[in-house]
């Protein structure tokens, strides 16, 4: 039983990262119906920027570890958000009115470009975050041994998700985003500047992805230019699992995918872990064709 709960925390820790990245996929999909394949690479860039900023400013030493990390996170999120907007402007906006799948190929091209740009700038070797940023203590939770850094990462991602949820549900801008997701033309008629909404989505999504990249760097220490491909694929799966376009769905899907992977490793086979995750996904889609929380869209008549 202890092993079961240990695996549950393992799964939730991984899942919270998936969820943060999945939010970027799902928000973009919501308003543009586009799978932003470059999102995973924005996540990678977040991780690399975090490392560079840590090394060049060493904020945690000058203004204390906690405030230092918060400021660092804000800087990374801001920079990745700007980059996200640039990608939108150059690779997606010219394709707004063209067939949907064309934009997917443009997204794939942008992904290849960004991944190789990171490789050429930082080199192909694994890069390492400075050690001892967060004290290497662990907390004993009823016999479960959970490292402090995991709890911090889980808490931070939950805070970000809660903030996003309130923003989308309670503010005027959030309402505009939801309106644009439901029907762009109707939203435009209601006086919503859809282009700005899309830009906003491309600021928020990448910002969250960048934050996730920073968290991966802090928690695991090593980063690599191909990591966005792996994480991006998982996060995309999570977004679909929860019902793409649906924000709570992405959060649920991410956490669930992490837990499915951990439980699959624990009780079936480690080598088949990813296959098990996809298998569960397919089963769920056969029963619920639009994901767990996705709305059943009536076919147009």
């Amino acid at each position: 039983m202890e092993e079961f709960f240990q695996q549950l925390t393992n799964g939730l820790a991984v899942g919270s990262i998936y969820a943060l990245i999945a939010l970027g996929y799902t928000m973009v999909y919501g308003v543009l119906k586009l799978i932003n394949f470059a999102h995973g690479d924005l996540f990678t860039i977040g991780a690399y920027l975090g490392m560079t900023l840590l090394a060049s400013f060493a904020l945690h030493e000058t203004i204390g570890p906690f405030i230092g990390l918060v400021v660092l996170a804000l800087m990374v999120m801001g920079l990745v958000a700007i980059l996200g907007a640039i990608v939108e402007r150059t690779a997606y906006r010219p394709l707004r009115e063209s067939p949907r799948l064309s934009a997917v190929v443009s997204a794939l091209g942008a992904s290849i470009f960004l991944q190789n740009a990171v490789m050429l700038i930082y080199g192909a070797r694994f890069q390492v975050y400075p050690e001892d940023l967060i004290p290497e203590t662990a907390i004993d939770l009823f016999g479960l041994y959970v490292p402090l850094v995991r709890i911090l990462v889980l808490a931070a991602s939950l805070v970000l998700m809660a903030a996003l949820y309130t923003f989308i549900q309670k503010t005027r801008i959030g309402t505009a985003i939801r309106a644009a997701a439901i029907d762009q033309d109707a939203a435009r008629l209601m006086g919503i500047d859809v282009t700005r909404v899309i830009l906003l989505v491309f600021l928020i999504g990448p910002a969250l992805g960048g934050a996730a990249g920073l968290m991966v760097g802090l928690q695991y220490g090593q980063i690599n230019f191909t990591m966005g491909w792996t994480y991006g694929m998982k996060a995309f799966t999570a977004a679909i699992l929860g019902g793409i376009g649906n924000i709570p769905g992405a959060m649920l899907g991410g956490l669930l995918l992490g837990v499915i992977e951990a439980m699959g490793s624990a009780y079936i086979s480690i080598a088949w872990k990813d296959a098990i995750a996809f298998f569960v996904l397919i089963l769920i889609l056969i029963v619920r064709p639009t994901g767990l929380l996705g709305e059943r869209v009536a076919e147009k008549v």
Binding site: E3, N10, G11, V14, Q219, T230, I270
Partner: peptide, 16 residues
């Protein structure tokens, strides 16, 4: 058993 390379969290493997 075999782990899946290129991921960053192997705690599930280690726990098992």
């Amino acid at each position: 058993d075999a782990l899946t390379p290129k991921q960053s969290d192997y705690t599930a493997v280690l726990t098992k």
